[in-house]
Simulated assay, not measured.
Amino acid sequence: MPKRLRLTRRFPVALTNDAYRSLHRFAEEAGITTDEALTFLFEHFGSVTDHENLGHRLRLFKSELEDRKA
């Protein structure tokens, strides 16, 4: 029997415009809400990310973070 989808945890989140548009595009293409899209991505994080690429992309993001905050 499938797990029931109960969105019981809420948190304020801030996104860049690019991240916001990507989330909405993904949700629209999948035919689900943005809440459901985030739930899907985090519940299946390990299988929807390339583990080797994730580390590389995270290092790049962190190295650019100070410049992006300015």
Rank of each mutant, 00 (worst) to 15 (best):
T33M: 08
D18L: 15
D50P: 01
E36K: 08
V13C: 14
D18P: 08
R21D: 12
D35R: 05
E64D: 14
G55M: 02
T39V: 08
E52K: 05
R21M: 14
F42P: 03
M1L: 02
T49N: 03
V48C: 00
E43N: 04
E64N: 14
F11L: 12
L5V: 12
Y20R: 08
N53D: 10
S63Y: 06
E43F: 01
L7A: 00
E28R: 10
R68C: 08
Y20P: 05
H44G: 03
F61D: 14
E64S: 12
T16I: 10
K69M: 04
R25H: 11
R68G: 10
R6N: 06
K69F: 09
N53G: 03
E43P: 00
L65I: 03
S47G: 13
A70Q: 09
D35I: 05
E64P: 04
E52C: 02
H56P: 02
A27C: 10
H51Q: 11
L5D: 11
T49R: 00
L58E: 11
R21I: 15
F45S: 04
G55I: 06
R6F: 06
E29I: 09
A30I: 05
L38K: 11
E43K: 01
V13F: 06
V48Y: 01
P2N: 09
F61E: 15
T33D: 08
L65Q: 15
R4C: 10
R4Y: 06
E36C: 01
R68A: 15
R21G: 08
G46Y: 00
R6G: 01
T8E: 13
L60P: 11
K62C: 14
A30M: 10
E52G: 01
E28M: 13
H51S: 10
N53L: 14
F45R: 01
S22I: 11
F45W: 09
A14K: 15
H24R: 14
K62Q: 15
H56E: 12
D18H: 14
A19M: 06
M1C: 04
F42H: 13
G46A: 04
I32M: 01
L23I: 04
E43T: 02
A19N: 15
P2S: 10
L58M: 15
F11Y: 12
L54S: 04
A37K: 13
F40E: 09
M1R: 03
A70P: 05
E28W: 08
T16L: 09
T33W: 03
D67W: 01
R9E: 13
F45T: 01
R25Q: 12
Y20A: 07
G46V: 02
R4M: 10
H44W: 04
A30C: 10
D35L: 07
R68Y: 11
